[in-house]
Write a protein that binds this DNA or RNA. Sequence first.
DNA 1: TGACCTTGCAGAAACGTACCTGTCAACGGA
DNA 2: TCCGTTGACAGGTACGTTTCTGCAAGGTCA
Lengths: 362, 362
Amino acid sequence: MSRAETPRRGSRSGRAGIRDVAAAAGVSITTVSDALNGKGRLPDATRRHVREVADRLGYRPSAAARTLRTGKSGLIGLTVTTYGDEPFTFTEFAYFAEMARAATSAALARGYALVILPATSRHDVWSNVALDGTVVIDPSDQDPVVSELVRQGLPVVSDGRPAGALPVTAWVDNDHEAAVLGILDHLADAGARRIGLLTGTTTDTYTHLSTTAYLRWCERVGQDPVYEAYPAHDPCAGAVAADRLLARPDRPDAVYGLFDPNGTDLLAAARRYGLRVPDDLLLVCCSESAVYATTEPPITTLSLKPRRIGTAVVQLLIDAIEGVESDQPVEQVIPTELIVRTSSERRSPRRTVSPPRSPEEG
Amino acid sequence: MSRAETPRRGSRSGRAGIRDVAAAAGVSITTVSDALNGKGRLPDATRRHVREVADRLGYRPSAAARTLRTGKSGLIGLTVTTYGDEPFTFTEFAYFAEMARAATSAALARGYALVILPATSRHDVWSNVALDGTVVIDPSDQDPVVSELVRQGLPVVSDGRPAGALPVTAWVDNDHEAAVLGILDHLADAGARRIGLLTGTTTDTYTHLSTTAYLRWCERVGQDPVYEAYPAHDPCAGAVAADRLLARPDRPDAVYGLFDPNGTDLLAAARRYGLRVPDDLLLVCCSESAVYATTEPPITTLSLKPRRIGTAVVQLLIDAIEGVESDQPVEQVIPTELIVRTSSERRSPRRTVSPPRSPEEG
DNA sequence: TGACCTTGCAGAAACGTACCTGTCAACGGA
DNA sequence: TCCGTTGACAGGTACGTTTCTGCAAGGTCA
């Protein structure tokens, strides 16, 4: 109350700045900064006083100024693959939604927020946002976005192991070969004689690894490969490919579909051709969607565990940003989970579907 | 080339700044800024020269500094409703994913990026990011986040009309009452005598408006309401509620489900009770998911048109940010779309499902 | 030949914060 | 009494832009 009489002629910008708080509290800017950030050596009385004045003035520190000063923005980029103008493809919906949800959650828990950015290298958007690091989903071989980010010295963590010699900081992925081999063995165990594959025409790592694993398995067991490939970003093409696969003269008696909608597409196609599932046709597809638990019949699915992946990716990235010496390896393989349902149980289905337990009636 | 001989002793921060570009090009900082931003009065030769030097040095302007100076960050917040720790609920997946996709696309087209933020008012995250405005999904009555944002003078546009006197800048919504009434009439036309409702226990506007519309319709036509409510964020509760609805002594002969998974849940419950759809039970649910086109039978769905909503919301927000005098009203009602499929066609299903056309075989 | 305008650029002041470097008083020990 | 130490703060600079204001040089016109 000694000499804080000049109230610093009206905060002209509308919002209160750190200067206004300092003036109102009768202390210096340094003291305010230290008090609010828990630094410096201040008696608790001063700290409380400053905090109270700041609250009273509704002071919110400028994120831009803080970012400029500290070099940290608290923002993490999340690149989404684009097909044409659309940010992410329909076939990846459930996976992406789950993965993004987990990533968002993990980031927020550590004080970071996620920024959605397109994988296409539009410099004007990318350079307009100050990022501390980036998560990229399934980067392509010579991804220009990744190169640019690395050149700027930003950590980059990818979902999906990087193709070629892409210099990412860390990556997280499933063991796609093992997953496919496991499914094929599972189908063979269930009595399948000729297993078909519904795959994609794109060149991403997931499609590539899965397809070659299938081909190797066929070679090993001496089966002729039976597969149809289609552009995975086109949902209609999937239905057509499923139909074509079941219309072949060498029709398979079991099919694994690499993409989420393949299950319903194959089921619809089987119905058209009068094939009973699982009696005439065993079905498995890779999906995160819950609908396959209640289809007729329920369909066996492979889950890639997107929530675990999203969490792991963000943890690795933030560790790299904050320079934490992580005890986790920088290359993490997340196990997949095969959720076995009726569609792949040829012999003696255990039991008929029972109604869900109602909490009221014991 | 006159006196640019002091090369400004090495850009210490690693990255090239505007100063380094100015020194290398032999011009002033002002000239570099003007040249790169297309401002000022400069001959094309200078402009080209500066641009070339900037490219050679790999110069990227600091987003933080620009934001601090201009007050614009190019970032738009997208708040997601949270249940517990999870950023958004499973039941909204398809809707949210579509809506977010459209919003992302629309924002990027106008040079903005989206930041995902939780609706819960964790100040430390919110105040750490410089936003130009925010999209909120289904804000609650006295939403503290919205109040805070408005207090800061930021424009806020909501998906879903704001409850109470929430001071949003603009909003976009469907006409939920009209949609429900339309569906009930549609079901009655198809021969339904007693229409049931699967609804939620939450207090959001969507659930509230839809439920009261149903009750009013029942009163008008003289039908006793038959409905079950469950916490919409719990997928298991939905299956139980669907089962309970069909187990009632006054079992409805038609059901409308307000949430996305209700269709499969109701279908599974109907199967358990030996009810044929649509012969014994007409079914409609509100969903954006494509799976309902290929279920057995295909299920009639109501689409809320999340893509149009996402686009509209972002356009309104950016217009407000940039001070554009929009010719669009600040309150936009997007029409819903009823996609009629077999599950609600009691009399004479038009035709059986035909296989999709294959591009190869005409 | 001055007065005046246009062109082409440079200087320097912000933007709001964080933090490094003092400064001054009080205090304790020799 | 003197010196070293510590606590409690203030001053000032830097972060990297944008942009307002100036200022010469050259051209135009009376």
